[in-house]
Simulated scan of single mutants.
Amino acid sequence: MKKVKLSLFDILARLGSSAPTKVDLPPIDPTEGRVTQSVRFPPKVRQWINAHAEHLGVSVQDFISLTMKGVMETTSSPQTDELDTMVMRFFLLFESHGIATADIPNFLPPNSITRSELRDTNKIIDLMDGPVFEHLQKLFGIERDWLKGSSDCAYRSRQFYKNLPAILSEITRYKLKTGNSVNVLFLTRSGVELAELAKIKNEDCETNDYEYIHIVLKFEKRVGSQTIATYQLWDSLPWGYWRSRYHAKALIYFCDKTQNYTAAYSLSQEKLNDFICGRALFPGIERHGNRWLLDELAWDDDRNPERDELTAIKRYFKEQGGEPYLNAIRHPYPPKIKNYDAFLAGAEPLRIDESD
């Protein structure tokens, strides 16, 4: 999507939107005339105001008054702000996933909108009803309230701590459905990579539990002739606490045994916060971080710097119910998977025939 040049009104409205949304104004006396207010502008600002006032054919005073009145009315209307935000996020969602504006109708329910109607903001506002919100939420994995403009969190964090099958189910189901691998991303703050995590493991958790590793799943989806990446935000696990670390390592172990991909990225604290709080969309996250490898934590040889924990990780993986998901991928057909269709549909948890 092309970048839109902001108008004077857009710029001032955005500036005004950061001010208090509710300002108590005193009653206005209809007999009161205009109040003269002296304002000093820097020379460049004054020249800019003069140029715009001349272009509109009004006085400088009228230009300033008209502009500020418009800003006041717009920023005091949260309904207008939410609708504007909804339209902006509608286009941002597609742009961030690499989808050209002309192709947007291909990613919506049939006959939802035409290309020419994408020029009309009101058409887009009217388009965004329940079924379309649900469709986009399911397709891109984003939150409906974010799309509506009523929330700043684009993703809902999912939990698998003390419930390892929750995340293994998502990975297994996708792999059985598509035959493709899932990319499991592990995010840390800048300066925290494998060597630093190894040091944290051997120190007191109470002083190091702020060093978290954040987990994101990346899937590829085929829509018509195009492939897009969608994401799920999962737990943030403190590496210094053994149970959290075992959970993360059990996931790495599973990926290694099932040919799913793992990659780790260290990001600036600011960028990391934006992503894990849902304020930034995940497409392109790899460009914002420094990549490092952690799959060796599942290897049973000297390349694994924490090989001393591997036996415990394997035992923990089994105790936490991970074995059925290994078996499902190794033997991905009935009768080994007792409820194949229901599991793929997400209607039932995985049930495996354990007999040989």
Rank of each mutant, 00 (worst) to 15 (best):
K2T: 10
V4H: 02
K5V: 14
L8G: 12
I11Y: 08
L12R: 03
S18D: 11
A19W: 10
D24A: 09
I28S: 06
P30T: 03
E32S: 13
R34Y: 14
V35R: 06
S38V: 15
S38H: 13
P43V: 05
V45E: 06
R46A: 06
Q47N: 09
W48E: 14
A51T: 06
A53M: 06
H55L: 10
Q61W: 12
I64W: 04
V71E: 02
M72I: 14
E73H: 09
T75H: 00
P78I: 15
P78M: 11
E82T: 11
L83I: 05
M86G: 07
V87N: 03
F90N: 01
F90R: 00
L93I: 05
F94E: 00
F94Q: 00
S96P: 00
S96I: 12
T101M: 10
T101N: 05
I104A: 01
N106C: 07
R115E: 10
R119C: 13
D120P: 01
F133Q: 04
H135Y: 15
K138E: 10
D152E: 06
F160T: 10
S169R: 10
I171T: 08
T172S: 03
R173P: 01
K175F: 13
T178I: 01
F186V: 05
V192C: 06
E193V: 14
L194P: 02
A198Y: 07
N202F: 14
E211A: 09
Y212R: 02
L217M: 08
F219K: 03
V223D: 01
Q226P: 05
I228F: 01
R243G: 07
S244A: 14
H247F: 13
Y253F: 11
Q259G: 11
Y261T: 15
Y261A: 11
A264R: 01
D274H: 09
A280D: 02
G284I: 15
I285L: 09
R287L: 15
G289C: 04
N290H: 11
D295I: 00
L297C: 01
W299L: 02
D301H: 10
D301G: 05
P305C: 11
D308V: 14
N327W: 03
R330G: 08
N339Q: 03
A342S: 07
L344S: 01
A345C: 02
A347Q: 08
P349V: 13
P349L: 09
R351I: 06
D353V: 09
D353F: 13
D356S: 14
D356N: 14
D356C: 12
